[in-house]
Amino acid sequence: MPETSQHAQNPREGMMATLSKEQIGRVLAKQGILIAFAIFLVAFTIANPKFLSVDNVFSVVRSSAILGVMALGVTFVVISGNLDLSVGSMMSFSTIVVLDLHDTLGPLLAIPAMFAMTMALGALIGFLVGYLRLNSLIVTLGMLSAIHGLTLTYSGGQNMDIADKEGTWFGVFGQGSALGIPVPILIFALLAALLGLVLGKTPFGRKIYAVGGNGTAATFSGIRRARTVFSCYLISSACVATAGLMQASRSLGSQNTVGQGLELEVLAAVILGGASLMGGSGTIFKTVIGVLILGFIQNGLLLLGLQFYVQFVVTWVIIILAVWLDIAAKRGKLWSPIA
């Protein structure tokens, strides 16, 4: 508004007071997660000086890499205004498939074959949500269960193991390191950089924001909405396939349920980063921050000597907190009787 600058030049005392008070509220609502995270880091470092040691930081990033790669893809889906709850069971599927094909086709063919199969699932979801306009929550919740069944059918319910664990180079994606940096971290970083550019700098990325922000207006602007949503699910499934590859490579054997529950952690990381579940906002950089926050919190709880299972509860609390702050940031207040 044009009046804004005029009033800012000769502010009245009373106005200054309300200004700063409301600004504090807004900053709290907007940056609340980062502030809470900073407090958390300081508190945990005081409680356990090992927490911020180089070794521990490296191990946190490394153990977050698989989740992180999946979160990169889900960021695309969430910004386009949809959900993807199938990524956990899809990751189990990729892991089992690539381990099985490793012994039948050999690693060189197993990897592209697994990518093709996983991305076919992504294409199916993209078709249902993008072109048929079905609700993404229903579609991907159903796919969560359907893909789980598919995985069990494929494996016959058995754990999958590579026969000759010593004689394969397949472990490089999960266990190797290059230039002194573990390969999982490299994959996560490179993929984050690549997808960050795609989302933030290309026309395709711009269209995703438009479709998620206001799909009708995007259509009225000549954007092919269905194709855009379809592409987001394809990217998400490619990320899941990458994560499955990393998982399989790390352990060279796997249960059918290796990715179970990851869909919620992934979603938590994306929301923690500040992407809105309504679509249209969020960035790859913010998602990486969200992944790290989640990783550090889970690691910190373990260092405190809490049971591993506590993290499931904590993850839920974090999701609720993040969603609350997201809404609060929009209305500029932590609580309001009207939406």
Partner: peptide
């Protein structure tokens, strides 16, 4: 007509964003 959460520039160039390219980027 508008994506309200987007900035003014991005809204204005939305229909032609595919044509405004420098290499692969906008």
């Amino acid at each position: 007509g508008l994506v309200l959460g987007m900035n003014c520039r991005d809204n204005m160039t939305l229909p032609q964003v595919d044509d405004l390219k420098a290499g692969p980027f906008v």
